[in-house]
C-alpha cells in the first residue's frame, strides 16, 4: 500500500513510522523547512518531499496517482480539506483522511466526500472526560514555568453559584474557565449569557496560590 501524508509534525511522523513498520510505502509532504529538517532526521530522506501538498504539481510529483491513501494532517483545516479534494477528485485516491481541529467543520468535510475525518478536539475532550473522575477539584495538568495549573471543578447541587451568570461571579486574578461540560451537551465556551448549573464540570486554568480561593467560590 502506498500512503502519502501531508504535514502533521509529531502525528505525521509517528503515522509514517507505523506504516513503514507495516511495510507500506510512505511519503511525507512538508512545506515548512524547519519541520522538514526534523522529519528528515526522524525518517529516511527518501520518505520526505518538500512542497505545498495543496498544489496539484506537488501532489503529482508525490505520485498521488498511484497512492492508495492520502492523509492530510496539517494544523489548518482548510488546507486539509482542499488537499484531500484534489487527491480525491483529480488523482482518484481511494481513501482520503483528514484531521480537523474545529469540530463544526465535520459537516463540510463530509459533504465534500472526505472518507475519514479525525476530529482532534473531540478526541482530546472525550479522552479527558473518560479519564476524569468526579471529585470537586482535581489537577489535570501542572504548568511549572508559569505556576499555573489546569484543574477540573464540579459545581455542587446546592452551590451558591448555581443559576448565577458566569460573568457575575468574580474569580481570582489570572483565572480562566476554558470550558464547561454539561450533561450530554457539546463543550460550552462560557460567554456573557452562560449560567452555572448544578453538576457542571469546569476545566479551569488557575494560579497555584488561587486554587483554594477558586474552590471556595465555586463549590461552597
Amino acid at each position: 500500500m502506498y500512503v502519502i501524508i501531508m504535514g502533521g509534525g509529531q502525528v505525521g511522523v509517528n503515522l509514517a513510522q507505523k506504516h513503514l513498520a507495516a511495510r507500506d510505502e510512505v511519503l511525507v509532504i512538508e512545506q515548512n523547512k524547519n519541520e522538514l529538517e526534523w522529519i528528515t532526521r526522524k525518517l529516511n530522506k527518501d520518505y520526505v518531499l518538500f512542497g505545498d501538498g495543496c498544489e496539484v504539481s506537488v501532489q503529482n510529483e508525490a505520485g498521488m496517482i498511484r497512492a492508495d491513501m492520502f492523509i492530510a494532517a496539517t494544523k489548518q483545516d482548510e488546507d486539509n480539506l482542499i488537499a484531500c479534494q484534489i487527491a480525491k477528485n483529480h488523482f482518484n485516491v481511494k481513501t482520503t483522511v483528514a484531521r480537523i481541529h474545529d469540530p463544526k467543520h465535520e459537516s463540510i468535510f463530509n459533504a465534500m466526500g472526505i472518507d475519514i475525518i479525525i476530529d482532534d478536539t473531540n478526541v482530546v475532550i472525550s479522552e479527558l472526560e473518560h479519564r476524569i473522575v468526579k471529585t470537586p477539584v482535581e489537577s489535570l495538568l501542572e504548568i511549572p514555568s508559569i505556576t499555573s495549573q489546569i484543574v477540573k471543578v464540579i459545581i455542587p447541587d446546592n452551590g451558591r453559584v448555581v443559576n448565577q451568570l458566569v460573568k457575575d461571579i468574580k474569580l481570582p486574578d489570572e483565572t480562566v474557565i476554558m470550558g464547561i461540560f454539561r450533561k450530554d451537551l457539546p463543550l460550552i465556551k462560557p460567554d456573557v449569557q452562560t449560567y452555572y448549573m448544578a453538576g457542571d464540570m469546569l476545566v479551569v486554568c488557575v494560579k497555584e496560590e488561587s486554587r483554594e480561593a477558586l474552590l471556595k467560590i465555586l463549590t461552597k
Binding site: C54, Q76, D77, E78, D79, L81, I82, I108, A111, M112
Partner: peptide
Amino acid sequence: QGDNRNIMVSEI
C-alpha cells in the same frame, strides 16, 4: 489572501 480559505468557506 488564502486560496484554500476562500474555497473552503465558499463550499460551506
